[in-house]
Simulated scan of single mutants.
Amino acid sequence: MEWDDLRHFLAVARTGSLTDAARALKSSAATVGRHVEALEEKLGAQLFERRSTGYLLTETGTAVLAKAEEAEAAVLSLERETMGADQRLSGRVRVATTEDLATMVIVPALPSFCSCHPLISLEVLARLDLSSLTRRDADLALRTVRPDKGELLIRRVGAVDLAVYASPGYVVSRHLEEGAVDFGKVEIVSWIEEMANLRGGAWLAEHAAAARIALRVNTTRLLFDACRAGLGLAILPCFGADGDQGLVCVVPPEQVISIDAWLVMHRDLARTARVRAVADFIVSLGPRLSRRPSPGDRDWH
């Protein structure tokens, strides 16, 4: 039995689709299908029910999944231990974070990092889901949610200040003054209902329940664009909104919220030189997250 067959089997089991599995593996659906069929032939058992809606594990497939995940854990542990001994400042490092932290904090600071470490190939993954560091979807993750599972090292890098903003034209048309907003007389732009628990969602539910929701969106970029367009007020991170000429702060962060930002990596990668170099770079960006001094942790936990 080959690990490559198991790897493709796991991808299909987790996604329920050859196409989605191929996308995750950066392969083709035909290749994924061949590996699954090869594994079924070697085991002499059908692992999936092929349905029009996707691939569903059979009873045997479910049993194989548990064993395959054990094998995966062993392989990835070996990879991490080997990588952990690597002291070269070269190679790929993948960082998972949110869209706004990626575009407004990390990317603008990258030229100096790349100049100092030209042999490190950095990949930044902007995604809302919590990437799995255990499965090596990413080497580092910068998040505003502290994870509580896995063999992870965690470090608070600072706090993200959030405030309420509007376009200059909207401020004039509604006669708004900073810190004195009557939410019963304004419109707001917020997250779609499935994402209502994201940054600022709970604050809006408590303080702006009387406001009319002009638009719901599912990305930070749309939140910024809609606010600039004058559709209404929006809670935005100060690190991106304060320097934007198309936005005016109408409720300061002192009256809204600040959220801790956490940098996370797997314990096995702590001694990998290139990963530590990228981690140190991200830690150095902590002061950019907040209007007010909010020093991060000195050590990993």
Rank of each mutant, 00 (worst) to 15 (best):
L125I: 15
Q87L: 08
A226W: 00
H301T: 13
D100N: 12
D148T: 14
E37M: 09
L133Y: 05
M104I: 11
L76V: 04
L101P: 01
T144S: 13
R292E: 12
A210P: 07
G286L: 07
A211W: 07
D148S: 14
L122H: 02
E99Y: 02
A22I: 02
D4I: 10
E72W: 09
F48E: 01
W300C: 04
V105I: 15
V283I: 10
A159I: 09
D137H: 13
E37F: 06
L285E: 12
E178C: 14
G240F: 05
L89N: 04
R292D: 03
D4V: 07
L119E: 15
C114Y: 07
E254A: 14
R23N: 12
S77A: 14
I257K: 05
R135C: 01
V248Y: 02
D225Q: 09
G200N: 08
E151N: 14
V251I: 13
A126R: 11
A45E: 13
T98N: 14
R94D: 10
H8F: 11
A141V: 12
L39V: 06
F48R: 01
V275Q: 02
S173R: 13
T220G: 15
A11Y: 01
P253S: 15
T19S: 14
T19N: 11
R94V: 15
G61A: 01
A11H: 05
I257A: 12
M83Q: 12
